[in-house]
Design a protein around this nucleic acid. Structure first.
Lengths: 192, 192
DNA sequence: CCCCAGACGCAACTTCTTCGCATTAAGCTG
DNA sequence: CAGCTTAATGCGAAGAAGTTGCGTCTGGGG
């Protein structure tokens, strides 16, 4: 049901998906998220509501799909010269983006769609990819690197938990502390 | 909007809330969660749909309220003689309950309601209360105890992250490892 | 005992959602 | 490249859900 994979990649289906996604983004900015409805989105996208219902099932799934797209990182994380600095910068940016009202909404939307765990795991994969990139870069420098599971448990999970369950401030002091705990568990890869 | 506090404590309002909550639980078991609708629930509860809409706003809020109630812990966690054993038992039980399909659904439902952070934080508070009880019990034994924030970051957050974002198995080996990391950060309270 | 405010039932109305059927377009085969 | 197959879309009707105003009732307070 995760629409990207099952749809015919080119042609009309792709155009419809694109225009519907765009309609969601536009309308969200114009009328606010709470006023979004399927008929409204469909009208803006130039399709009939039944098309949206058939493709996405309901509004939640659609919003979930759009939210995941927005959570996709732009590119490779910037290089700050050391693993610790890279992680600190990444965590600070992650915390800032995700703890905003908009960021929290995207995470919640992404999480709430698709009970069969399609979109939620993609969120985690995005973070994992970024962290893996940082790790490989650091390994190339000869630095010791904590494994991915550790980074997810020690850095990402606490941030996400606070964002979802407890309105905390997520200061740089806090993210730095998480990073410090993570790098403390570093180990050199077997082949290095 | 969190219905418990704002309603008149006794009398009809209380009866309505109780019967509606009960109707949700019954129907969830009978027809399945995806078939739940406000009119259906209202009919079972013996009230009109408009009553439900006025009290809860929409189905999501209602499900969120019911889910939070189900996530409320039964009583004080059992005593296993040491902080480490207590935490291990608590974490194992937490992981087992929450990673089931039903448990995940409740968490998601709780998260789903109320953008203004009412129900989500209550989930976290339930865990925090349990952990605080464990901590005070351990402090009474003279044990060193990690502070609550640490426990939430090191034990609860990774579990919740995996439950929500990554379908992992959450074995006892894993929960024990989290507990080990947490007790490693213990410190004696100032007055002890 | 009476009054006031909040909560509820009722009913009409609007909007959303589902479904069958016809049509169009994409991908595939010869 | 022409024809075929199948998925996806548009359309419209029917059904279900959500919304709202108004009168009534219940529970708390004077």
């Amino acid at each position: 049901m995760s629409t990207q994979a099952t749809t015919r990649p080119g042609g009309r289906s792709a155009r419809v998906q694109q225009s519907v996604h765009q309609a969601v983004r536009d309308l969200e900015a114009e009328v606010g998220r709470s006023a979004l409805t399927v008929p409204l989105i469909a009208a803006r996208a130039g399709v009939t509501p039944s098309t949206v219902y058939r493709r996405w099932g309901d509004l939640r799934e659609l919003l979930s799909d759009v939210a995941v797209e927005r959570l996709r990182p732009d590119g490779a994380p910037t290089d700050h010269g050391s693993l610790r600095a890279d992680l600190e910068a990444w965590a600070a940016q992650f915390a800032e983006e995700m703890s905003s009202t908009a960021g929290r909404t995207y995470i919640r939307d992404a999480l709430l769609g698709d009970p069969e765990q399609g979109n939620a795991i993609r969120c985690s994969d995005y973070a994992a990819e970024q962290l893996k990139a940082l790790g490989m870069r650091a390994a190339g420098r000869g630095e010791a690197v904590p494994d991915l599971e550790t980074l997810l448990d020690v850095v990402v999970a606490p941030l996400m938990y606070r964002i979802l369950f407890r309105p905390s401030d997520l200061s740089t002091a806090y993210t730095d502390r998480l990073v410090a705990a993570a790098v403390g568990r570093s180990s050199l890869p077997p082949q290095a």
